[in-house]
Design a protein around this nucleic acid. Structure first.
Lengths: 155, 155
DNA sequence: GAGTATACGACCATTATTGTCGGCGTTCAA
DNA sequence: TTGAACGCCGACAATAATGGTCGTATACTC
């Protein structure tokens, strides 16, 4: 069904929240979880992972919490999803270094790898900032790829 | 992890196979399954589904099997995936008609819906024919969306 | 009518995701 | 200096999705 995991959703929501409240020095996982009615401990784990890869900065103790480690405009949806869900492979048979199970098997893998790159490209073009302020890159990307689709179909 | 299901993979592989052998009137599920070392009954189910939505034509009995119901160039990867895996939603919370569970909850849903459209667009631009003959739409789409990504990032 | 094929529903096995628990280290402020 | 509020982490239980199998019915060819 090609869908994002909830964890990735939660991560994006949290980052968006942080981007929307730049005045607050640091926000606790619990605050965000309460706002969106998300399981606090699960969100905490997600945020910890985002911290580990350097997208967030954490601060323990009283009044601690999380903050973006860089401007929202420079954090792509791709980075977030990659950090939470791991490498983005559209083909189900791509596992680490070794390819498919047998011989000439997955003949669609190579072409699909390109599709994979397309999708990764789209996700790379969306920043957390774009999630906050509508009518920007997200819209442009949608328009543009709509265009690709049309030109390809009518050839 | 945003990956295709194996069923969808199998479906694409089978369609590609059929597109590669236009001379054969009809190919049995078993033949294709043997070629790619896929569980025959599982592939059979996939093909049955593709038949149901009209992408394939089936023929029972001796020398029966499946055949494309229209030119490979007019069958998009999107159709195939949609037929097998159901509607393509990137957001995990989109279930049928009703939206998210609560209030202002999923604030990322709306922007992600656009990302969803972008991806659908990419998939719509890939035909089964493209899977067979490389260096065509698949490549163009990849190039183009690479371009989108770059222009968006450097703004 | 025997053999080969699709069609379809029910079902189990496996894997992935989601969510929870408990203990630990850190910070801050009373 | 103690305790409340917080992040950090590993393990694990619950649930859902996927992958795969089985049995039977039906259609077609020879």
């Amino acid at each position: 069904m090609l869908r994002l995991t909830k964890k990735a959703d939660y991560g994006l929501m949290a980052l968006k929240y942080l981007a929307e409240h730049p005045e607050v020095v640091s926000v606790s996982a619990k605050d965000i979880a309460d706002t969106y009615r998300i399981p606090p401990q699960l969100l905490a784990k997600v945020l910890q992972r985002l911290t580990k890869v350097g997208l967030l900065r954490s601060h323990a103790g009283m009044n601690g919490g999380y903050a973006l480690s860089k401007p929202a405009g420079t954090i792509s949806a791709f980075e977030v999803i990659h950090a939470i869900d791991g490498p983005l492979f559209i083909t189900s048979c791509t596992k680490g270094s070794k390819g498919c199970d047998l011989e000439p098997s997955c003949t669609v893998k190579e072409p699909l790898a390109r599709v994979n790159e397309s999708i990764a490209g789209v996700l790379r073009s969306i920043s957390i900032y774009d999630l906050v302020d509508h009518e920007t890159a997200a819209q442009r990307a949608a328009d543009a790829s709509q265009l690709i689709s049309l030109t390809s179909l009518t050839q």
